[in-house]
Design a binder for these strands. Sequence first.
DNA 1: TTTAGGG
DNA 2: CCCTAAA
Length: 615
Amino acid sequence: METLVAAEGNDEQQVNGTSDENISPPLSFPKEIADPVVYKLVRVEGDGRLVPATDDEVMEVEDLLEDDKIELPLVADTGQNKGFSSEKANLEGSEGFLQSDNAEVDAEKLNARLEYIEVMLQKVKQEERLRLSCASPDRSSDCKIMDGKPSDQLNKLRASNEKLQSEVTLQEPIPLLSPRLNKSQTYEKGGTETFLRSTDGLLNNGSSASAHSTSSKPDFSILKEEICLDNLSIKELHETFKATFGRETSVKDKLWLKRRIAMGLTNSCDVSTTTFIIRGKTLVRNKVTEENSKSVDTTLTKDQVVVNDNCKDLPSNPTNQMEDQGVLSGKIFGKSDVESGYKSEDIHMEERAAKRVRKPTRRYIEELSEVESRECSGRFLSSVKNTGPTPSSPKYIARPVSNVRSDGTVVVTRQDSLGGSGVLVPYVSRVRRGRPRKNFMALMVISKAEKEKQPVFTCRSEHQQNVELENLDSSRGNSDDNVVTVPTAKGGTRRKHHRAWTLTEVMKLVEGVSRYGAGRWSEIKRLAFASYTYRTSVDLKDKWRNLLRASFAQSPTDKGMKNSRKHASMPIPAPILLRVRELAEMHAQSAPDLSSGKLAGRSGRNVNEARTGYL
DNA sequence: TTTAGGG
DNA sequence: CCCTAAA
């Protein structure tokens, strides 16, 4: 497909910034359920499968996003689509892309968040209603905002709004559930089609997801109206601001004012059934004309604020938007209960009001990945190669970034946590919590409400499903890379990261040698050690050398070894050493003629040395 | 690029 | 574990 579609929020300006202005504090999660933002870049293949994007593709997209050249649609990962799982299966043994080990945890967390949001929302709304009822039971006629101070300005604003609403542009009904879609736009004509088709594929593959997608699809219509805050002067904006928040502001930034006003409006009771969307420089107000009777709490407002300055030219294709939204809704809520769909609606409300987080730039990626994971950056380039041999996606691997557009749609699935201010995309992340994997990029936001809106990039790499195993057999196991700086003769200092060999690794090595023969290190690496990306073929060779030495050194004189090194390194079990010796001798016999003198000589010599030397 | 071997 | 020569 000829299109690259992208995630919203690629370049969200700071709404709060470090400004002195403070509005109602954003909803923040308790730590237990606050998750970092996770971006996942995937590509939608022609058949609808989602495949993880390569590093290069990620970089490319990052660049494009940074340049505001593209915008990717968001796709909720329910973890049910076949593409992911099949991809995982294909990558098994090498770079298993998505781990499902945390799916349940994530789902749990998500549900916790949903509930939490709902509770908080009700709380807020209650308070607000209380305030309002104190001032006046009829809020539509005499509304007071925030500190209960009567606001003529607000009425004024409302009047102006009303006036502006007369010139509204009527659009096709748009489900309220996925206002996010307004931010998703395509830059080429085929984009939406591609996206839709891909999601169709997803839905077809996701059993429950498809069911919910239709059931939870809202059928109420929305009347969309536009308000051009843009036409207001700074002064007017100031007035509006004051009307909205009940206080003055000194900020001169028009954009900031507009955003803040929009947020303020949606935080207030006055627009309890409207949706505000800032598109480009236009404030769009979506009015709910028909409340969904199934709504959990009909008194809850349906406010939404979508801020997107990147929409310079909207596709203005209501049909596609509709469909997109439906699909998205289905995907997003596919994994949740039907009822949670309405909770999620509330989420959207909050998420609109909340401050959005900026997507990390490539610079961040580079800088932080360097700091965060040296190993990752060190092997960054080789990652593609490592995944290359996987039969599943040769095309995918070989595909240069520039071809992303021509061969598949790149979409970003992401999970944000409100975390105080972020956006929550209710999808169950299947991101592993373990060690970082290199070709899987996760972007997370460390800080939330405060100035620290800067996302941090962590390069997740290595370490496959063997973590569990390694936890068992090695003392340090999967502990951090012990990066030791070793002074070199030339005065420089090189990094030496040490990773203890685990028992499973050793066993795999022995197994590999027995199968492919000693010396076929690259083969062994590729076939038996595909998942251990941190072990190079050279490492295997070195380890084998050590094993050899150990095996021939230990068995003859057991006592001597024990005495000399008690807690040396890993106590390699005798059977394994035995097997090592067998293999070594076998190999010495089987290939003596090959490189006649050397290979045979080495093995034989070693055997003799070991035996005679320690005896 | 992989392998073997020295450090 | 790193480095390098050799294939």
